Simulated assay, not measured.
Amino acid sequence: MNSYHAVGVLLAGGASRRFGEPKALYKLNGKPFYQYSIEALKNTVEDIIIITQTQLIEPLRKQTPYEVLLDDEKYRGLGPLAGIYTAMKRVHSEWYILLPCDTPFIKEDVIKQLLSFIEKYPNKDAVIPIINGKNQPLIAGYHRRSLPTIEKHLSNNELKMGMLFEAVNTLFLDESQFDNLEAFHNINTKADMI
């Protein structure tokens, strides 16, 4: 494994309004979306935790052996930052590797490449890919050191991930650092799968 402790955090709490039904449980080639993220993580991290919404907590608990939680009550419904905060409060680790539930093309190689930069730059607080000119904050790594800043941002209702990157020691990785750019393709509507 790694020379540091890393936990995978699967975010499966979005409302999926544009998609029309919960994306996490939607099946592609007979497998629910969230399962692709689990498979990308399971051989690369020490543990996996799933953060979801009320409607999905029971179905996910029935389908997976991993711990499934709602956002911490204090910040429930405040988006990805609340999910990261909840994972950091619940499971003690040095690093938290985030994945969303709507990237069914994600593969283990992307996680390994992300982890190789964490290994190389241990003093960074966040490791964020930039693909097609856009930050990918939900396919990224966050060090435990960023927890006080995350909590401060949540308390101040500063929920944009970009504000966090400005406040902590962030390493941005351009797309040349990754072999599989399709892995970053997220599905917002059913038309995105065509």
Rank of each mutant, 00 (worst) to 15 (best):
T86P: 09
A87Y: 12
A87W: 12
M88V: 09
M88P: 06
M88L: 11
M88K: 08
K89V: 06
K89M: 14
R90N: 14
V91P: 07
V91A: 04
H92N: 14
H92T: 10
E94I: 02
E94G: 02
E94V: 01
E94D: 15
W95C: 04
Y96I: 02
I97L: 15
L98Y: 07
L98C: 07
L98P: 00
L98A: 04
L98G: 02
L98S: 05
L99F: 09
P100K: 01
P100I: 01
P100S: 11
C101F: 02
D102I: 01
D102M: 02
T103Y: 01
P104I: 00
F105I: 00
I106P: 00
I106W: 04
K107D: 09
K107N: 07
D109Q: 09
I111S: 00
K112M: 12
L115D: 04
F117N: 10
I118K: 11
I118W: 14
E119W: 08
E119L: 10
K120P: 04
Y121S: 11
P122M: 13
P122A: 13
N123A: 14
N123S: 15
D125G: 09
D125R: 03
I128F: 13
I128M: 12
P129G: 09
P129V: 11
I130M: 14
I130P: 02
I130R: 13
G133N: 10
G133W: 01
G133D: 06
N135E: 14
N135I: 08
Q136F: 10
Q136K: 12
P137V: 03
L138C: 09
I139G: 02
A140V: 10
G141E: 05
Y142S: 03
H143F: 09
H143C: 05
R144C: 02
R144W: 11
R144F: 13
R144A: 12
R144M: 11
R145Y: 13
R145M: 07
R145L: 10
R145W: 12
P148M: 11
P148I: 08
P148H: 05
T149K: 14
T149V: 15
I150A: 06
I150W: 03
I150Y: 04
E151G: 02
E151C: 04
H153G: 00
H153R: 11
L154M: 10
S155N: 15
S155H: 07
N157T: 06
N157A: 12
E158A: 10
L159D: 01
K160R: 13
K160F: 14
G162L: 13
M163T: 12
L164T: 06
E166C: 08
E166F: 08
A167Y: 06
A167E: 15
V168K: 04
N169V: 03
N169A: 07
T170K: 10
F172S: 10
F172L: 14
F172I: 07
F172T: 13
F172E: 14
L173A: 09
L173R: 07
D174F: 12
E175P: 06
E175I: 05
S176W: 05
Q177L: 08
Q177N: 12
Q177P: 00
F178S: 04
F178I: 03
D179W: 01
N180R: 06
N180W: 07
L181H: 06
L181G: 02
E182C: 00
A183Y: 06
F184N: 00
F184W: 07
F184Y: 06
H185V: 03
N186T: 08
I187W: 02
N188Y: 14
N188P: 00
T189W: 05
T189Y: 08
K190F: 03
K190I: 04
